[in-house]
Design a protein around this nucleic acid. Structure first.
Length: 650
RNA sequence: AGCGGGGUAGGGUAGCCAGGUCCAUCCCGCCGGGCUCAUAACCCGGAGAUCGGAGGUUCAAAUCCUCCCCCCGCUACCA
């Protein structure tokens, strides 16, 4: 059996953060290193995704051309991966000759097989920017709920919108008004592949259950896929002046980058007996479990994915990560202060891969110091120092002569090896690491029971320490995929090879391999993170305004006279507010903070001259003011003592 | 709104698909004791859980069914 491991192509408009590391790269690298360690034929292929409009936008913002942006972030991303200890056999770019050719050949084959057709469609065109605008680059008002909508999707009510349903559309680049123009687009007949996809998914034995469920659900309603874009940055569609939609060409990168290795690529993509594992983040599960296999089926020659391993999301200190709000920890900043192997350990240990989990600095410190170091670090260290002091080398004894309790620990080693194998091969990286931790606990317990420090009989002492060293060697071997650097450092002290044998070699002078995490560094990192957040929100950064600006806002006191829930919304309540001379209906996003009945009678501050809008289909003629803190607590603004409804606020 | 995942002791997590072996696993934390080879580390023992809520099926439910609540994500260009 041959294994091809791929990791999601990183998008070259920013470096990697801890979320990328946890959901995709670290698990994949563990799988890769493990299979390699077991002597399997395995390669890891990855790279960066360089096309699509966001790159051109970033380029414009930074006053550079797209190639420069791509180059910059491609290199940064690769450096981040190196820092994490993630290894690749091939790491490519989608903006490269080999990929562009491969993607075009792929496309032509789809066409030849009858899966591509042309259709004239109408699309937004921005006369100002002189370009057609892909969906996401037009914003406007949702015709159903009056909320803000982007392209074909309303952010507020979540409806899918037909093109041009959008009211008051504007171009996100120049804010100008786009016009509608006709253009010829190419479509991929995804809908024709329903039966084949269903059969594929149902028979994909190693595909995780939740991925299967999602995929099967998705194919119930498959749309054909508009795969052309009227922009210039991308893989040109042969014979046109358009480029391919990135989700058509990017996954082909898995093939193109394998080609970087020469003819062996054929073994992985064309010959049977290959397992293909795609490691991705959960947001792109459908692309990998439905669209990509659909493309491969339509193409007809390549192996299909054996499994799509979709990693859960990582929150930071209990809150959603956000690069724009600077609520993020970048890989390169993290590894400046802490060992990458500690990160690998922590991110795997925190939760099973498919689940979301949280990264917190305090928890990181606790888990590393109290679990990894106290249990595993301490066991390996006490065994090596003690053995070194007594014998200077690993004593080799005849295993047949060992006592029951020795044999029991050695048996536990064997069992752990088996359990780890089973768990890693079924993507249960955390479970396997727990198996390893348990072996170290058993080791400590054995050491304690045997009391080698009190054993006078040298032969017996050799037996005990042989058993301990064998256990340490097993730990080093099994830990290698998780913590390669630490594992190799221990191996160095043992003067050993990366396998399960003991050679009786002379031990190097022991030193501490697993150093505890420094509180100061934790505090530094936390401080930096929280300060970023303050800066972002802080008043200093805001532009100063003239008092006349304030006069433009009509603020008045209003009394809530009716309040009811808007059932189909997540956050909205409908309020009727008395403003003295009139009553107004106002929709407010405070569901969950206030019960409708508690609001009635409250005096609130209302922005009266706000442009009316429909939210979730309900008209809102104003806005009530509320304060919100870091923890997401919300409080309505009200008046200090009773005052007439309709009073002006100034 | 639809879909996917999740809600189990202070935190994390196993068990759930194939109901009894579960007065519920493991790791951290907490409490008590022991040890001294070891990074104030280690070992032994203990306390701590209405298994999100309400019904139902069953001799038997954390596990199956129904309804509800809460958290996260996706919905086609953010791991």
């Amino acid at each position: 059996m041959r294994y091809l491991i791929t990791t999601a192509l990183a998008y070259t408009n920013g470096p990697l953060h801890l979320g990328h590391a946890r959901s995709t790269y670290i698990p994949a690298d563990i799988m890769y290193k493990y299979l390699k360690l077991r002597g399997e034929e395995v390669i890891h292929v990855g790279g960066t995704d360089n096309h699509g409009v966001p790159i051109t936008l970033t380029a414009e913002k930074e006053g550079k051309n797209p190639e420069e942006i791509v180059e910059k972030y491609h290199n940064e991303i690769k450096e981040d991966l190196d820092l994490l200890g993630v290894e690749f056999d091939a790491f490519g770019k989608t903006h490269s000759q080999i990929h562009i050719e491969t993607a075009q050949e792929f496309y032509l084959k789809l066409k030849e097989n009858g899966y591509i057709y042309e259709k004239e469609i109408e699309q937004f065109y921005c006369p100002n920017c002189k370009k057609f605008l892909p969906d996401r680059y037009v914003e406007g008002i949702c015709p159903y709920c009056g909320g803000e909508a982007r392209g074909d999707h309303c952010e507020v009510c979540g409806r899918h919108l037909e093109p041009f349903e959008l009211k008051e559309p504007y171009c996100v680049i120049c804010k100008g008004k786009p016009e509608i123009r006709k253009t010829k687009h190419y479509f991929f007949k995804l809908s024709a592949l329903k039966d084949e996809l269903e059969e594929y998914i149902k028979n994909a034995e190693e595909m995780p259950e939740h991925v299967k469920n999602m995929a099967l659900n998705w194919i119930k309603e498959l749309h054909d896929w508009d795969i052309s874009r009227d922009i210039s940055w991308g893989v040109p569609i042969p014979g046109t002046n358009q480029v391919m939609y990135v989700w058509l060409e990017a996954p082909i990168g898995y093939i193109s980058f394998t080609k970087m290795l020469g003819d062996v690529w054929k073994k992985y993509w064309l010959e049977k007996d290959t397992k293909i594992y795609h490691f991705i983040g959960k947001d792109i599960t459908v692309h990998h479990a439905v669209f990509w296999p659909g493309m491969l089926i339509a193409h007809g020659s390549f192996n299909l994915p054996t499994a799509v391993i979709s990693g859960g999301y990582l929150t930071l200190e209990g809150r959603k990560m956000s690069t724009s709000k600077k609520w993020v920890v970048w890989v390169k900043d993290f590894v400046k202060n802490f060992d990458a192997d500690y990160l690998r350990y922590y991110l795997v240990m925190s939760a099973p891969l498919f689940k979301d989990c949280d990264f917190s600095f305090d928890d990181f410190k606790n888990k590393i110091n109290n679990e990894l170091i106290n249990i595993i670090g301490n066991f390996t260290h006490r065994v090596l120092t003690f053995t070194h002091r007594k014998f200077k080398k690993v004593p080799i004894v005849d295993e047949g002569r060992l006592k029951e309790e020795d044999k029991e620990l050695l048996k536990k080693c064997e069992e752990t090896i088996k359990a780890v194998d089973k768990n890693i091969r079924s993507f249960k990286f955390r479970d396997a690491l727990v198996n390893i931790l348990h072996l170290a606990i058993e080791g400590n317990s054995y050491f304690q029971k045997m009391e080698p420090w009190a054993v006078k009989d040298e032969e017996r002492l050799k037996e005990i320490l042989y058993t301990c060293c064998k256990t340490v060697k097993t730990l080093i071997y099994l830990l290698y995929p998780y913590m390669p650097k630490k594992s190799l450092a221990l191996l160095e002290l043992m003067n050993e090879e990366l396998d399960l044998n003991l050679r009786g070699n002379e031990l190097k002078k022991p030193k501490i391999i697993f150093k505890k995490i420094d509180d100061k560094k934790i505090e530094e990192m936390k401080k930096k993170l929280y300060e970023n957040r303050k800066e972002e929100k802080g008043g200093k950064e805001m532009e100063q305004i003239d008092i006349s600006y304030l006069e433009k806002i009509d603020l008045r006191v209003g009394e809530v006279i009716e309040a009811e829930d808007i059932p189909k919304s997540k956050k909205l309540l409908k309020l009727i507010v008395d403003l003295g001379d009139e009553k107004r209906q106002i929709v407010s996003g405070i569901k969950g903070y206030y019960k409708p009945e508690d609001l009635v009678g409250k005096k609130v501050i209302v922005v009266c001259n706000l442009k009316p809008a429909k939210l979730c289909g309900v008209l809102s003629e104003g806005m009530i003011l509320a304060a919100e803190d870091d923890e997401g607590n919300l409080a309505l603004l009200t008046v200090d003592k009773d005052i007439k409804a309709g009073s002006k606020v100034r």
